[in-house]
């Protein structure tokens, strides 16, 4: 129970952090720090998909509202990630571990597999976000550069944050 409350508080904290980052941290045109994928990936895998979809939509929408972004931008990317999270996990994790894992991390599915899973999910989110945000306006090279740089930075940030969490189920 305590663990569950801690997890919810941790996700709320991440969300607040994300709002602060979006508002006050500008790392230039190539890097967009985005904690939403970490929040979604930290929701247990046993959560029903429809609940996860609604949660992801709400998280994205709230972020857009609080960070004065284009309303719907983060929610579109978050909903897509929520829908694809399980298939990506099934594709990357070992079959014998799939049913036992609630929240995948390096400890329970292996460091390499977890990195693949995290990178794929983050890349999907960033790709959706950068495409909706910049396709047709920004040149292709800028979108590609933003996608690659943001994915790399966000994967790194996610690894650091996940390392900071003391106990995981």
């Amino acid at each position: 129970m305590q663990n569950k409350i801690f997890r919810i508080l941790f996700l709320v904290l991440l969300f607040v952090l994300q709002v602060i980052i979006s508002e006050y941290l500008n790392l230039g045109p190539f890097v967009y720090i985005c904690l939403v994928p970490i929040i979604i990936l930290n929701i247990p895998l046993s959560t029903r998909t429809w609940i996860l979809l609604l949660e992801a939509f709400a998280i994205g929408l709230l972020l857009d509202m609080f960070s004065n972004g284009v309303l719907g931008l983060n929610s579109a990317a978050a909903v897509l990630l929520a829908a694809c999270r399980k298939p990506i996990y099934k594709f990357t994790a070992r079959r014998d571990r799939q049913d036992k894992t609630e929240i995948p991390n390096a400890g329970n599915i292996g460091a390499n597999k977890y990195l693949e899973y995290l990178a794929a999910c983050t890349a999907l989110y960033i790709l959706t976000y950068t495409l909706i945000d910049g396709a047709g306006i920004n040149p292709f090279w800028l979108i590609l550069a933003k996608f690659l740089a943001s994915t790399a930075v966000n994967v790194l940030v996610a690894l650091l944050i996940n390392r900071a969490i003391p106990e995981r189920s």
Binding site: W50, L53, F57, L61, D64, V70, L71, G72, A76, V79
Partner: peptide, 21 residues
């Protein structure tokens, strides 16, 4: 139903994007 919900939420997101930018 989940698929419809997914499509609905995505459409809603795009409607919001369209109305705000």
């Amino acid at each position: 139903a989940t698929l419809l919900l997914f499509i609905g939420l995505e459409v809603l997101s795009f409607v919001l994007i369209s109305n705000n930018s």
